[in-house]
């Protein structure tokens, strides 16, 4: 076996996994704080990226566009809390899950209604080409952009960690995630907190949208990356930020290795199901995912 090629597959898999993690993070945030499995996260990614790119194409400065998009996502987050979650409070999880699928349709339609259904290109200034130095010296192709995405993801996770660990709101978020009632009892206003969570998830969606948009173009198919994040979630556990990252790395690396080294023997295309089967195998050992919180069940 050619070790350089193996390293290349492994590293590109890990970096692809980071991209999945970016999407998975949004799911985790919302699930943690409100117990909602938000299927609309993919649509939010699409919505954010499309809004951003349309603003830039209309001549807006990059950073202003980021801020405006962020503001839009906050408004969307608050609106979702107000119009969808609040009336459905105390409903079973499956109902909320369904509601977020409905939300997916609304967001998809709204985004295309506002900005049209054309795909857009998005350049962040980091070309998606191999790092020359590595290619020359070690004959290993690692994309600059992937490394950049990895750094961004790292920064995002670090930022979220600091936010969660040290700030008053962050602490409140974790408190709400742990125990709604007790959080209410100490005077944490759930609704505001939920609105904040959705807004933060909107921010994460924007980052993910920028990354994925720069990679594949900003188009409707961005909504499908939610499907890529699902095995990451079950592997890592729905409630764990760390799980989203580790899960992403494992899924990314193993699916690439499987496709490259196993795929040719079975006709290829195994990427479509391999991550799920892998996650399933993990679940059989740990039913709540790698880092998920163990649920205590008593009769």
């Amino acid at each position: 076996m050619n070790w350089q090629f193996f390293v290349e597959v492994l590293v590109s898999g890990l970096l692809a996994g980071i991209m999945y993690s970016l999407v998975a993070l949004g799911f985790v945030l919302i699930y943690k704080a409100s117990g909602v499995f938000n299927f609309a996260q993919g649509a939010m990614v699409f919505f954010a990226a499309l809004t951003f790119v349309s603003l830039v194409e209309r001549g807006m400065n990059f950073w202003i566009a980021v801020v405006v998009t962020l503001a839009v996502m906050v408004v969307v987050g608050i609106a979702i809390e107000r119009l969808v979650l609040r009336p459905l409070v105390n409903q079973p999880q499956i109902t909320l899950f369904m509601a977020t699928i409905g939300l997916t349709f609304v967001l998809e339609g709204l985004a295309q209604l506002l900005w049209g259904s054309q795909p857009h290109g998005l350049e962040l200034g980091i070309p998606d080409v191999p790092i020359q130095w590595l290619a020359d010296n070690a004959n290993i192709n690692i994309s600059q952009f992937d490394v950049f995405a990895g750094l961004i993801a790292g920064a995002l996770v670090a930022g979220l960690a600091v936010f969660f660990q040290t700030t008053r709101i962050g602490r409140a978020l974790r408190a709400v995630a742990d125990d709604h009632q007790a959080a209410l009892a100490v005077g944490i206003p759930l609704r505001q907190i939920w609105a904040i969570v959705w807004a933060v998830a909107g921010f994460v969606a924007l980052v993910a949208g920028l990354m994925w948009g720069a990679r594949n173009g900003v188009q409707f198919a961005l909504t499908f990356i939610a499907l890529k994040a699902l095995p990451v979630l079950i592997l890592g556990g729905f409630e764990s930020v760390a799980g989203a990252i580790v899960g992403g790395l494992i899924i990314g690396a193993s699916e690439k290795l499987a496709e490259v080294y196993l795929g040719p023997y079975v006709g290829g295309g195994i990427e479509s199901w391999f991550p799920y089967v892998l996650a399933l195998a993990f679940l059989l050992i740990r039913p709540e995912g790698l880092f998920g919180e163990r649920r205590i069940e008593r009769v």
Binding site: E8, G13, N216, F224, I225, K228, K256, P264, E271
Partner: peptide
């Protein structure tokens, strides 16, 4: 083959390489 929708093709193009 590229599984639908095809928004991740790292493995396929590594094979090409």
């Amino acid at each position: 083959p590229v599984p639908t929708p095809g928004n991740e093709q790292g493995a396929q193009w590594l094979q090409v390489r």
